[in-house]
Amino acid sequence: MMPVKAILLVSCALFCVGIYGILTRRHAIGILLAIELILNAAGLNFVAFGRVFGQAEGQAFALFIIALAACEAAVGLAIILGLYRTAKTVLADEVQLLRG
């Protein structure tokens, strides 16, 4: 018997830990890591429900989530590198370049 409920609870907990990370982190890369946690929680949910209903859709969309997470990580890290080069900081709340 597959403990699907336990896996869904794990995915909820992973999502909430990610929310906590986004709210508390100052380091831009730390925020990105928390976003990866949230995306993983979503993928886990898709696969678990796909298993419950015996459909391949869940796995297909988890695959799309993984691909989009790769894009997001690449662009996000490039932005952080560019930000570091221009503003000399990686702390998200110290960047004030757009302040008039």
Binding site: M1, V4, K5, L8, C12, R51, V52, G54, Q55
Partner: peptide, 15 residues
């Protein structure tokens, strides 16, 4: 999740 739990038994054959 708890409210949904009773209706969630895995399908007999996985995708």
């Amino acid at each position: 999740v708890n409210a949904l739990a009773p209706s969630m038994t895995p399908a007999p054959d996985p995708p």
